Computed example of a mutant assay.
Amino acid sequence: METYQEEVYQTGKQIGKAYIFNFTKFDSDPNDRRQGSGKDAEKLTDVFDTFGFETRTETEDQDQTTLSMFNKKLDDIAKQDFSDFASLVMVFMSHGDGHHIFVKDGRFFIEDIYQKFYGNKCATLLGKPKMFVFQACRGNKTNVAVDESPPKTDATRDEGVSLQSLPADSDCLVCNATTKGFVSFRDKDNGSWYIQTLANVLLAYYKCKIKGQSRKQDILQLLTIVSRNVAKKQFGSTETPSEEGPIGPQADTVPIQFTQMPTFISTLTKLFYLPQRKVETENITQIF
């Protein structure tokens, strides 16, 4: 008779490697620098470092990264020996068209990223959790909220990635800032709604400050908390929100309030727990 039991990915001493790609310069629009995305890269770097990841932030290199250079960087990462590492996290922040990521001189097909890290392509990642995070829009539609008082914010839109590219391979987790067909928002001064919330929730988990029946949550529970908190965010105005689509700035004056709904798709086969700091219970102030 078939039995069912809970299994957990073993993290060991080396939790994993994290790569953060933040594209900020595009030949199609030299004036578009995706303001605020630097805040996202900095915060994520700090968070992954806190968890003990070996973190590489590609922000400074992305201004000159062409399609061929980006492809080679991905190939070089996939060829690495991950035997001593328990997981891989890759974050991509850029414009796109729903199926591609935009780099300096063109578009890179999303599915080609996943395939480079399949178990048959990267043997030392076989059976290990691989997390891909995309801060980007997935269409032109805007989610709206009704009868709420929105915060004042200078939000911008990114174009992005479709979850249709998710491979059938196991042990993968793909996280998108928004649902298919919709935009995501980024504040020019404070960074994107999704990445900032993701970083805050992960850091709160590390410090044991997540409210709930258990002091330890797996990554899918944490992502659900992220989704809930992003979904509660809103901004609205009769003014024109700035849009940074791949074909240049566009605008539409709408007296409504905007919101956003992140998504994730998991083919993880075990529970994935990140490490936590050991703290005394009485010193915990829960925030999520």
Rank of each mutant, 00 (worst) to 15 (best):
V8K: 15
Y9M: 10
Q10S: 15
T11S: 13
K13F: 07
N22K: 14
K25W: 06
S28Q: 12
A41R: 06
K43V: 02
L44Q: 06
T45I: 02
F51M: 04
F51R: 07
G52K: 14
T55R: 04
R56C: 04
R56L: 06
T59V: 03
T59K: 08
E60C: 04
D63H: 13
D63N: 15
T66E: 05
K72Q: 10
D75I: 05
I77L: 05
Q80F: 00
S83A: 11
S83K: 11
L88C: 04
V89L: 07
V89W: 02
S94T: 12
H95N: 14
D97W: 09
F109D: 12
C122K: 08
L125Q: 03
L126W: 06
G127E: 00
M131W: 02
R138Y: 09
N143E: 12
V146L: 01
A155R: 09
T156R: 14
A168V: 11
D169E: 14
S184R: 03
Y194Q: 03
L203R: 15
L203G: 10
S214H: 01
R215A: 15
I219W: 04
Q221V: 11
A231R: 13
K232L: 12
Q234C: 15
E239Q: 13
P241S: 03
V254F: 06
F264W: 05
F264L: 04
T267V: 09
T285Q: 06
Q286H: 12
F288M: 11
